[in-house]
């Protein structure tokens, strides 16, 4: 009897530590953010008494913040698209290549993750700045007269984020392609398909789960990125995550900061759900 029930509860016991950890450090804080976002602003304290919808009214009523969330989403979309276009061929080569340099290439792909985020972002400021390596080289070669604006704008943020998140796109797609039986490609060739057709008709649809996972990861990570956008965007271009931290830490507006944070999270969540619905539909229909 005792052994019987302990057997039955064994799976529950096994997931209990992770479940408790998640509840205490993720679910509870989230709930507290939700509650916080409805509180009134405080005078001399993080929040005042009572509850209000004013924080959301301010968020949705202010074109500054709406513009900012639009810009953040745009950065997310462009980074995801850039990572997909740059990452897919690399993932394909890593999955199917026979070169002895594959191990090295794998290491290069992972390398952005091996460097701390702050160091990496400072590295990008050295490269992208008006007096940075890229602009000076281009001017030295006489290709441009004055520095290209690569820092303190959306372009700079996109470049740096694409670099960091590329591995998160490449790895799931690579493993999806590795899971595709190579004889399918031979079969398609024997039926008269060119290389491009094989990629479009066989590899792309069958690696869709990997593409979907990679896109979601990259998109979500770009939306929530903080260090890179704040270092490269500076005070001129702010993403939503930067504004959230500003509100929470710099100006001490916990309720409003919470509303901003939830606004970003919900928007991102809705897009991810719509995206996965849509992609699943297309590959089912294929």
């Amino acid at each position: 009897m005792t052994t019987g029930s302990s057997h039955r509860h064994a799976p529950l016991l096994l997931i209990a530590p992770a479940a408790i950890l998640l509840f205490v450090f993720l679910v509870l804080p989230y709930l507290s953010i939700v509650v916080m976002s409805f509180r009134t602003p405080g005078q001399g304290s993080p929040y005042g008494e009572g509850y209000t919808l004013a924080n959301y009214a301010r968020f949705f009523g202010d074109s500054f913040y709406l513009g900012q969330i639009a810009n953040t989403l745009m950065i997310g979309f462009i980074c995801t698209l850039a990572c997909l276009l740059l990452g897919f061929p690399v993932a394909w080569q890593l999955a199917r290549g026979t070169s002895r340099l594959r191990g090295l290439a794998y290491g290069v792909v992972l390398s952005p993750l091996l460097v701390g985020i702050v160091i990496r972002s400072y590295g990008w400021t050295i490269l992208l700045g008006n007096n940075g390596v890229i602009n000076r080289s281009l001017m030295g070669l006489g290709l441009i007269d004055r520095p290209l604006g690569l820092m303190y704008n959306t372009l700079g943020i996109v470049i740096a984020l694409t670099h960091v998140f590329l591995p998160f796109m490449i790895l799931p797609i690579m493993s999806a392609i590795q899971g595709i039986d190579p004889s399918l490609e031979s079969a398609a060739r024997s039926l008269g398909a060119s290389r491009a057709t094989i990629i479009r008709r066989i590899i792309l649809p069958l690696s869709m789960p990997g593409i979907q996972a990679g896109c979601i990861l990259t998109f979500v990570l770009s939306l929530s990125a903080y260090v890179t956008p704040s270092l490269i965007g500076g005070s001129k271009v702010k993403t939503m995550a930067v504004s959230v931290v500003d509100a929470l830490v710099d100006t001490f507006q916990w309720p409003f900061g919470s509303a901003l944070a939830l606004g970003l999270a919900v928007t991102g969540g809705v897009i991810v759900v719509l995206f996965s619905r849509f992609t699943r539909m297309t590959w089912k229909a294929n």
């Binding site: 039986d181 004889s183 399918l184 031979s186 079969a187 060739r189 024997s190 039926l191 008269g192 398909a193 060119s194």
Partner: peptide
């Protein structure tokens, strides 16, 4: 291969 006009049956069917 794609222009040889062959029909091929694979061991794992593919």
């Amino acid at each position: 291969a794609e222009r040889r006009d062959i029909g091929m049956v694979f061991q794992n069917y593919a």
